[in-house]
Design a protein around this nucleic acid. Structure first.
Length: 706
DNA sequence: CTAGGGTTAG
């Protein structure tokens, strides 16, 4: 924009219109600066419409500081200027400020109108301030704009979001009939409110009663069912929804909803169907699909989505890029993750966090630390989550000093108050390194109440370093904190088993039984030709069940011929169940792997063991991985273990992830076996991801490369 | 006299 059109002989209204259209077409803040300069040159800086437009455009371009400067310099802002600025504040999450500018507006004698309240109400909703909501509602009535549809919609929405369904219903009921009939959106907002308030029955009733329905109504209701985990009803309404009404939002809602309810396969199935039906995915869709891939380790599907993005020439946005990095990292393809990471322009904190924890969980602690340094050098301020990732990297690789340094730097250099997860990570850091006294001392000095995970970390360290007194102390705490958690008993039993106190093992087992605490069954997934199959222990429901069992028998025979003897020392014996499973030889992971081997003689079985609960499974699992490798021409198998068992996390982490860092020393027993099974020229590589957060899933990948 | 807009995919 070197040359401005000759303005001298243009009259003012035309000029204003011209400049407004120029502001509209601006794509960057510097362009706005140029236009602003011209506005000043033409003595138009008191022109309210122009400044209004400049404020909203700079807000759109994320330059709130500039918008604020424009607002402050404007001598007597009228309601237009105020409205634009309040909206800018609300759009940029400055909710308190947005609300206080309404008061400011009243003091300055600018009259709020039907376009002021929506953004103030949105801010109130975001803050969840029910009391403030009532005050603003009062003002709406006082100013006399409560019959405006836009305002009403925002009022209802506000009441919904501050958790006041009664208020929302009241505003809706008070709305004149013509408004209710004419406005689908008012219904949608209220149906959404009923869903959020957990009143699904009411939501359906309103849905059936409304005069006409557009896509949004269906989407809101389907989303409501998905949010409460009712996949069945979500599906029923989705199927009932007319085909031409299903838009990107509908499909994305379904994909991410199914995935968030742990049905990642159906989520991905829906994604495929969506493409078949010719609906174009957007960033939201891609991210949901990728996150489903990451959860179940569906690498092939993930790669396919990556190829789809490239093929369609879609720009690798920051959010999609971040999702891709995460997917590759969680599927164990850390080199691909790193490659994509380099391609992402304008990385933000999340992008860096994903990459850093990717390095950390894939066993590359020094690269994680390096990445953290790079992030700081690029001027991005770390938060509590990055620190958790980086502390994990330290504890995985035995860098106690570095971990302690970072922990202190977090508090003193960055003023980030550690939370319970950081404390757990520190206990893990000391404990893993064998500094048990330091770990215990640390727990005793933390300012908040240590939770199950903190004591669990100490316990696992005690077990690893065979300190039975401290282990008993820890497991006592665990039992106090979670008396019904099977893990509490398994912990205690394990430590007794480790030192051969079998009568104590039995005592714990009986105690557990008398309280009828049981471990829930584990299940396994395996991806074959991009299709994910799921198995339970002893599962005979698979179409090719007979073949699978035959294959499994063949593998079992071979395993024992190779001298495979399950080491049950670490297992909490649930005799009946174990015997049953062993007799059938049908642990879920064995079934899955047998199926994988028989289905992909030349391919890459990727197996996912889900919700694994018993420590011993890990052992047999490793054996089967090595067998899978034997059974494959390509000498490559991948196993992903997902569990919420703290004990198992630590076992796998110690047995697998650790040995990666010290490949030459102290290979754990499982590992020796695995190593032998692999034979010459095979490079065994393992990596584990540990999360100390119980709500996070745990994934350990094992790769055996030729 | 005039500029500016709402719900649903975390």
């Amino acid at each position: 924009m070197r040359h401005f059109p000759p303005f001298s002989n243009t009259n003012q209204p035309t000029l204003t219109k011209l400049i407004i259209s120029l502001i509209h077409s601006s794509k960057t803040t510097p362009q706005l600066h140029q236009i602003h300069a011209q506005i000043i040159l033409h003595s138009l800086s008191h022109n309210a419409p122009l400044i209004t437009q400049l404020i909203s455009s700079s807000s759109l371009l994320r330059s709130l500081d500039y918008a604020a400067a424009l607002f402050r310099r404007f001598p007597n802002p009228n309601s237009f200027v105020f409205n634009a600025f309040i909206r800018a504040l609300s759009d940029n999450a400055h909710f308190n400020s947005a609300i206080s500018h309404l008061a400011h507006m009243l003091r300055r004698g600018a009259r709020p109108d039907r376009l002021t309240f929506p953004f103030v109400l949105r801010s109130v909703a975001a803050l969840g301030e029910a009391g403030l909501g009532g005050v603003v509602h009062g003002l709406v009535v006082k100013v006399g704009v409560e019959m405006d549809l836009f305002v009403r919609v925002c009022l209802v929405d506000m009441y919904v979001k501050v958790g006041c369904l009664v208020g929302a219903l009241q505003v809706f009921d008070e709305s004149p009939e013509r408004v209710k009939v004419g406005s689908v959106i008012l219904w949608n907002v209220l149906i959404n409110g009923c869903c959020r308030g957990g009143e699904l029955g009411r939501a359906v009733a309103m849905f059936e009663a409304m005069p006409e329905r557009s896509s949004g109504s269906w989407n809101v209701l389907i989303h409501g069912f998905l949010r409460v985990g009712d996949l069945g009803w979500a599906r029923r309404f989705f199927d009932r929804m007319p085909r031409e009404m299903k838009n990107v939002v509908t499909w994305t809602t379904m994909i991410s909803g199914f995935s968030q309810n742990e049905d990642h396969e159906q989520g991905l199935g829906l994604f495929r169907r969506m493409l078949e039906e010719g609906v174009r995915p957007n960033d939201h869709t891609i991210v949901s699909a990728l996150s489903a891939c990451a959860s179940i380790g569906a690498l092939r599907t993930g790669v396919w989505i990556h190829e789809y993005i490239s093929k369609k020439g879609l720009r690798l946005s920051r959010i999609v890029g971040t999702a891709l990095v995460d997917m590759y990292a969680k599927c164990g393809k850390i080199d691909s993750a790193s490659q994509v990471f380099e391609e992402v322009r304008e990385k933000n904190l999340l992008t860096w966090t994903v990459m850093i924890s990717g390095w950390a969980t894939n066993g590359c602690s020094d690269l994680a630390l390096q990445c953290f340094e790079d992030m700081r050098n690029s001027g991005i301020q770390p938060d509590d989550v990055v620190f958790l990732a980086i502390l994990t990297a330290c504890s995985h690789s035995g860098m106690v000093k570095e971990g302690l340094r970072l922990f202190n730097s977090m508090r003193f250099d960055h003023a980030i108050e550690p939370n319970v997860k950081h404390y757990a990570s520190m206990v893990d850091l000391f404990g893993r390194a064998g500094q048990l006294e330091e770990a215990l001392n640390f727990i005793e000095n933390i300012p908040i109440k240590p939770d199950f995970v903190v004591w669990g970390a100490l316990f696992c360290a005690c077990r690893a370093h065979k300190n039975i007194q401290m282990a008993e102390l820890a497991s006592e705490k665990l039992l106090q904190l979670e008396p019904t958690h099977p893990g509490s008993y398994i912990f205690l039993s394990n430590i007794y088993a480790a030192v051969g106190r079998w009568e104590d093992v039995e005592r714990v087992r009986l105690k557990m039984k008398s309280k009828s605490i049981e471990k829930p069954p584990g299940w396994s997934y395996i991806e074959v030709d991009g299709q994910v199959h799921r198995f339970l222990a002893g599962d005979k429901t698979h179409q090719r069940s007979r073949e699978i069992f035959t294959k499994l028998e063949e593998l079992t025979v071979r395993a024992s011929a190779e001298g495979y003897n399950p080491d049950t020392k670490w297992v909490l014996h649930n005799i009946e169940e174990e015997e049953k499973e062993d007799a059938l030889g049908s642990h879920s992971e064995k079934l899955a792997l047998a199926f994988g081997i028989m289905s992909t003689p030349n391919g890459t079985p990727i197996m996912i063991v889900k919700n694994l609960r018993v420590c011993g499974d890990c052992h047999s699992l490793m054996k089967y991985v090595s067998m899978a490798r034997d059974g494959l021409e390509h000498n490559f198998a991948r196993v992903i273990v997902e569990t919420d068992s703290v004990a198992l996390k630590h076992l796998i982490q110690q047995d697998l992830a650790r040995s990666m860092h010290r490949p030459s020393t102290a290979l754990i027993k499982d590992f020796k076996e695995l190593d032998m099974g692999c034979g010459k020229g095979i490079n065994v590589r393992t990596f584990g991801q540990i999360s100390l957060l119980p709500e996070f899933s745990y994934i350990a990948n094992t790769c055996i490369h030729a």
